[in-house]
Design a binder for these strands. Structure first.
Length: 420
RNA sequence: GUGGGUGUGGCGAAGCGGUUAACGCACCGGAUUGUGGCUCCGGCACCCGAGGGUUCAAGUCCCUUCACCCACCCCA
């Protein structure tokens, strides 16, 4: 159908776009204060970037990417997330030569071929930050603090920071072995999905919703049980910095991130308002990512948040972030001559930064007044033939209905005086 | 990809086999000739997501399809 948008995409209409602008401004402001600078990365990349960066076995790469061949037979993919591109750009532009850490943020559309539902779309928008070049736990905490500051300024309540550490590759290997050892005893009693997960991703068994599986996995070794001394120390320090920043968190040893690049710190910010899609923000440390893309070993930590998921949350919490402003002036005219003069005045008002409007449908004066009222105009300028012949116009204050005559030459000046 | 629910004008919502498809909001116009927010009057669905079928007759039954919602999965 020609008049139907592709599944999972959205048109954002006036009324909504103002809210997006408000959010975008807020994100940029907070980032500026935290020392994160904007990077704009391509909407599409070489497919290999995501295969390597995100991981071949992840759902995102294995079944959710929009991949196609361009006219030169290159495999191209619409970006499903922003971290891989940002890391690529960091290496490509040798940002490691800059004072470290390099702190970046991005926002924009991402694409994943998934079944749409509330809070989940095929084209959706992420805002994300990445800090490259420091393995200090304080950066992990800063990044979490940045996310929380955004939500704080939006006025959101009831957010929970879920925190875990998945350790380094060594810890992960050790944990996987211990976990499988634990699970194999009762493997046949787990649900079919979990039996599948046993080989592919045993960690996932821990957050299966099936009550039976929950029960069976009680007491299973957690990633935290298997942290090496270095990773353990890192995790403790992250918690320490979060305490210093007075950021509350809950340890969630079942929290696992789905992308291959995560190491050590993993976190999610959870909110209850959007049904099944409760993760409003997710991130962590990815010390192996840059190396896997062919760069020098470089630590990194960051997060991404789903912008679409913020709006329903705001709404159910009764928070309005609209930045729509009422109209300053409506210019109503009567007759052809007056209409021309009205148009001139309108354009002059706008040169002076006055938000102003006129009728463009040849409506009756009555209808124009009605229109002005609907726009919530503060002032209406009324121009008729009789006023025109005397070189004046009528200025009406819409709240009090007071009207005065103003000389044609002074309209703009007088209007401005009455507005400010 | 799997399971469940829904689909009537711009929005909300009746109708559940039978003449011109209620109603509310919104929108447009009018109520003596040049003035808003209240009130009153009028207008606004060759058609009930799309396609096909059953029937003398379908928005109302059946099939297919599409979209949306919820859950699984996964994630932001």
């Amino acid at each position: 159908m020609l008049t139907t948008r592709p599944r999972g995409t959205n048109d954002f209409l006036p009324g909504e776009t103002e809210k997006w602008q408000y959010l975008e401004d807020l994100l940029r402001t907070v980032c500026r204060e935290f020392g994160y600078r904007e990077i704009r990365i391509p909407i599409f990349e070489h497919t290999e970037l995501f295969q390597r960066g995100v991981g071949e076995t992840t759902d995102i790469v294995s079944k959710e990417m929009y991949t196609f061949f361009d006219r030169s037979e290159r495999s191209i993919t619409l970006r499903p997330e922003g971290t891989a591109s940002t890391a690529r750009a960091y290496l490509e532009h040798k940002m490691y030569a800059l004072p470290q850490p390099t702190k970046l943020f991005y926002m924009g559309p991402m694409f994943r071929y998934e079944r749409p539902q509330a809070g989940r779309y095929r084209q959706f928008h992420q805002f994300g930050v990445e800090a490259f070049g420091s393995s200090e736990p304080a950066v992990d905490a800063e990044v979490i603090g940045l996310a929380m500051e955004i939500y704080r300024r939006l006025g959101l309540n009831g957010l929970e920071v879920h925190l875990n550490s998945v350790g380094c590759p060594n810890c992960r290997k050790k944990h996987r072995e211990k976990l499988q050892e634990f699970l194999i005893k009762n493997l046949n009693e787990f649900c079919p999905d979990c039996r599948e997960r046993f080989e592919k991703n045993p960690l996932r068994i821990l957050d299966c919703k099936n009550a039976k599986c929950q029960e069976l996995s009680q007491g299973a070794p957690t990633t935290l049980d298997c942290l090496c001394p270095e990773c353990g120390e890192h995790f403790d320090k992250v918690k320490g910095y979060l305490d210093l920043a007075e950021i509350k968190y809950v340890i969630d040893e079942r929290l696992v991130r789905g992308l291959d690049y995560y190491t050590k710190t993993a976190f999610e910010i959870i909110v209850k308002e959007i049904g099944a899609q409760s993760a409003i923000c997710g991130g962590g440390r990815y010390d192996g990512l840059l190396e896997s893309l062919g760069g020098e070993p470089t630590p990194g930590v960051g997060f991404a948040l789903g912008m679409e998921r913020i709006f329903p949350t705001l709404e159910t919490q009764g928070i309005n972030i609209s930045i729509e402003k009422p109209l300053d002036v409506f210019v109503a005219t009567l007759g052809d001559e007056a209409d021309k003069v009205g148009f001139q005045i309108l354009m002059k008002l706008r040169q002076e930064g006055v938000k102003s409007e006129k009728d463009f449908l040849g409506r009756s004066l009555k209808a124009q007044m009605k229109h002005a009222g609907r726009f919530n105009a503060r002032i209406t300028i009324i121009i008729g033939e009789t006023e025109l012949s005397r070189g004046v116009v009528v200025m009406r204050r819409m709240d009090t209905s007071e009207q005065i005559e103003v000389s044609l030459n002074d309209v703009v000046k007088v209007v401005k005086e009455n507005l400010f």
